[in-house]
Nucleic acid binder design. Structure first.
Length: 450
RNA sequence: CGGAGCGUAGCGCAGCCUGGUAGCGCACCUGCUUCGGGAGCAGGGGGUCGGAGGUUCGAAUCCUCUCGCUCCGACCA
């Protein structure tokens, strides 16, 4: 993509309403525009990142054997009356009537609807286990939206629902989700720690929240610092292997890690030696629940088991805050010049800076680099604007592309361009073809690992 | 929802207290010079001062109401 033909409205000054770094950079980098309190348009650059995150979530869900689908944003109130949540949910739920005076709501989550779908079509234990999920916009009319997309009213979320015959099967589904989530976050360059959490209005005894440590996090967290040494890495996972999934759950959840909702100071002191006790803040980027027959019973989601008995299915629900992750990743990865995208979610694989647009040699070299990257299936952003070098560097640093190829007449005289790493600031001079090769290598390697 | 504050050009702000018909920086347009870390000079365009009432000869400025947004608190992916 040539920047002169793209739409990237970067701001030099920080809009007054943005309090935290991710919100400031998302506005300045031209990723989002606020349309109302807690409601945002996703401009092209932000949209690209959102879609990258969504893709990773899909890939990992499908890998775990979960099945994608799509439910609507609007739901009839009647479904929610069946579960009893129409009254239980407060003013956070956006309610309205259609032209026929039917009560509707903008879905804050989809347990009722998925249960309705399940009960319509599934009658036998032979159709289990089943996990369906979708990635869809949700709305919760927060009293006080803030922090940009981290705490919006409208948000994009993956929510998945498992249906199993027994509690044991459902707990395996729970473990499977935990494992798939660990993989998912790591691919985004994040360390998200599963912490014992509180059920909240969704309910459930078994639940973990996934927290990314960040000073601006909304939750206070307490944990054993040994947890931060754990890496999922490039493991071979068989998601049907009950023992393997259980072992991974134990590996990642056996040490003390809780949010303030469930924190127990006495237990904390008993279980964690003083030098490893940590108190910090975290951003919640996902949560998994097992809640048994909480919805299947009242809503009649039953199957016939192998003894011919009609029994309610055991369920769980599992969420990943896709739009929130965009902010969370920035909170976890930035410096005073701007965003630093992890390779897994970057909107463009690398930037190309032409230091002297209009110089025949520089233009030709940039075109060649751009075209060879595209031919390799990569997506570069070429700054071909007639701007000064400083402005181009500042823009590249702000939008946070992990790699930059700088092309100028001075280097070209010696047959070299400059390849710079956004994260470390390190750069090396090398011939244009070698720079292209390096970028291909970086992403080829990253793709092979994924 | 309780408390606090802010709405003046695309963005950041001044002007308001002490009424006299709107200004600065950035951005934008034109020209010249510049050109490896957000250039310089010269010229130019752009604002129903959130909205509605009221007071006044006259309102961005004073009064009333209203809408929107932000911050602190209680609630949440």
């Amino acid at each position: 993509m040539r920047l002169s033909r793209y739409f990237l409205p970067v701001l030099k000054e920080t809009p007054a309403e943005a309090q935290i770094v991710s919100h400031r950079y998302m506005l300045r980098a031209g990723m989002i525009k606020q349309q109302a309190a807690g409601i945002y348009s996703w401009l092209p650059l932000g949209y690209k990142v959102l879609k990258r995150i969504e893709e990773i979530v899909h890939e990992e869900q499908i890998r775990a054997g979960h099945i994608p689908m799509l439910m609507p944003t609007l739901q009839p109130a009647d479904l929610w009356r069946e579960s009893g949540r129409y009254d239980a949910y407060g003013p956070e739920m956006l309610r309205f009537k259609d032209r026929h005076d039917r009560e509707m709501l903008y879905g804050p989550t989809n347990e009722e609807m998925i249960t309705d779908i399940f009960r319509t079509y599934v009658q036998s234990y032979k159709d289990l286990p089943l996990t369906l999920y979708h990635i869809q916009w949700k709305f919760r009319d927060e009293m006080r939206p803030r922090f940009g997309v981290m705490r919006g009213r409208e948000f994009y979320m993956k929510d998945g629902y498992n249906f199993d015959l027994t509690k044991e099967d459902a707990l395996h589904a729970y473990n499977r989700h935990l494992v798939s989530y660990l993989r998912t976050y790591e691919r985004m360059g994040l360390q998200a720690i599963p912490m014992r959490a509180d059920g909240g209005p969704i309910g459930g005894d078994y639940t973990h929240e996934f927290l990314v440590l960040a000073e601006t996090g909304e939750s206070e967290v307490f944990y054993d610092s040994a947890i931060t040494e754990l890496r999922f890495g490039n493991r071979d996972i068989d998601y049907d292997d009950v023992a393997q999934c259980q072992a991974i759950l134990e590996e990642f959840t056996s040490r003390y890690a809780r949010t303030d909702e469930t924190h127990d100071e006495t237990l904390f002191h008993q279980q964690v030696p003083e030098e490893r006790r940590r108190r910090a803040r975290g951003i919640e980027v996902g949560q998994i629940f097992y809640f048994g027959t909480k919805y299947s019973e009242p809503m009649g989601a039953m199957v016939v088991n192998d003894k011919g008995e009609r029994v309610p299915v055991h369920m769980g629900s599992h969420g990943i805050g896709v739009s929130r992750l965009v902010g969370a990743i920035i909170e976890a990865s930035h410096d005073d010049k701007g965003i630093i995208w992890p390779e897994g979610v970057t909107p463009f694989h690398c930037g190309i800076v032409n230091l002297k647009t209009g110089d025949a040699e520089a233009d030709a070299a940039c075109d060649a680099i751009h075209d060879s990257l595209v031919a390799l299936g990569l997506d570069p952003l070429y700054d071909d604007r007639d701007e000064r070098a400083g402005a181009k560097f500042a823009t590249m640093d702000l939008i946070g592309l992990p790699w930059r190829i700088t092309v100028g007449p001075r280097g070209l005289k010696n047959g070299v361009v400059e390849l710079t790493c956004r994260r470390t600031g390190e750069s090396q001079e090398l011939p244009p073809e070698k720079a292209v090769e390096r970028i291909a290598q970086i992403y080829g390697k990253a793709l092979a690992e994924a």
